[in-house]
Design a protein around this nucleic acid. Structure first.
Lengths: 227, 227
DNA sequence: CTAAATATTTTAATTAATAAAAAATATTTT
DNA sequence: AAAATATTTTTTATTAATTAAAATATTTAG
């Protein structure tokens, strides 16, 4: 019987890793996680979630009491950040070394993130030059699980005339990408909000070395920036 | 119900891919494959092999009649070469981009070879400069499944004074690697057999830009060359 | 050519992981 | 306190892979 010595590296199934990762994302937004939100996010049924919660609780990955909302333990957090680190490093590789578009890499990284070798990830990290952010602007945890806490603020919430950098796009549908292309906005664009129009919530923006444009309130809510 | 249209890309489980790959390796050596050899190679029981054979036959991957030896169909061959292509490209990447030793990459490539995206492999191939051989000297199939047919001949079988290039090492144990280091022999070394000693099957070799050495018959049987 | 040895398949059962419908129970809202 | 909602338990199912033991086919040796 394998015990969980502190130096013993636990292995998780793909499914477990996906659950752990998604619990992290939810708890990152709002502290604790309800079974129903997790079921919704993972497009599965509440009963399936409960099954997995019992399993993860048994492995000391989550703090969990029946009927209560739950959160990752320290060990769970560490595991989540390892998976997220892998995912984001692979995304960086796919875009910056293999030349993929940033909107095409998520699915592939979903597979690559489950490859288990830590030596591989450590070397990949060096090879890529220890990048801090993935192609979507999300921070990449370091080998110790340390992650830059970046506040992503929607363009719609940005104060006037404060320079900001586009860091991520919420809705990554094809129609959204089309719009971004039209306005020549992409991850890394330096941008300022010049005016806000109360009437329809549209805003006037200035893109560095680019024109002044007016974008809809809806679009501005989907573009996130780092100030 | 999904039918197997000619443009429909079949998906295989990791286990199926491993079986297909290993059938390829056996059939590459000796034309047809017996269930028992496959069971031995894969360290499993004959009954498990039969189960898988029925499944692969159902998917038109092998030519199979009960109790007879079997072989890959054209489609099976294509699949096998795709998996082997992935495996060898990843090995090349691990060694030549991430700086792994060539003897440390097999296990990691065993995982990476099952990542499904073909776009990924096509881009990886370009990124690596369309290499022809992996770090063990084995040929990498191209995107169409075309593979350099290289005849690997053991140093012990090499005619006298014919220049050859070390292409692969059969026994990849630590003790073997130690010996190779001692003699300064590695994949790609240009080498000639100068004399053969009948008494103990040892041979005298000349390594390009290196000294003349005598190696044991046992060692010479484990070093393969391309003539 | 036949008996014995060997190889392969079938059968039946097992394990493991995941999923989920339906019923039961707990919590929250009104 | 009742109603609505959320969660868990129970039960059932699926899928994939594995294998011991029995049955059957093939090959080998005498």
């Amino acid at each position: 019987m394998h015990l969980n010595y502190y130096f013993y590296k636990m292995n998780f199934s793909h499914s477990e890793e996906n659950y752990i990762k998604n619990i992290y994302h939810l708890q990152d937004e709002s502290g604790e996680v309800a079974a129903s939100s997790l079921a919704a996010l993972m497009q599965t049924k509440a009963a399936s979630v409960t099954e997995m919660l019992k399993k993860l609780h048994g492995k000391k990955i989550i703090n969990y009491q029946p009927y209560k909302s739950f959160s990752l333990t320290e060990s769970g957090l560490k595991t989540a950040l390892e998976v997220i680190r892998k995912h984001r490093l692979w995304e960086y590789f796919l875009v910056n070394k293999l030349g993929f578009n940033w909107d095409a890499v998520h699915e592939i990284a979903e597979e690559l993130e489950h490859v288990s070798s830590t030596e591989l990830i450590s070397r990949l990290d060096s090879f890529l030059g220890n990048p801090m952010f993935d192609p979507h602007g999300d921070p990449i945890p370091d080998s110790k699980g340390k992650i830059k806490m970046v506040k992503h603020v929607a363009l719609s919430e940005l104060p006037l005339k404060i320079p900001a950098k586009v860091s991520s796009i919420k809705d990554q549908s094809a129609s959204m990408l089309q719009m971004l292309k039209h306005y020549n906005i992409h991850i890394g664009s330096n941008i300022k909000v010049m005016r806000k129009f109360e009437f329809d919530s549209s805003i006037e923006i200035k893109i560095e070395k680019g024109p002044v444009s007016i974008i809809s309130g809806q679009l501005s809510k989907n573009i996130y920036c780092i100030v």
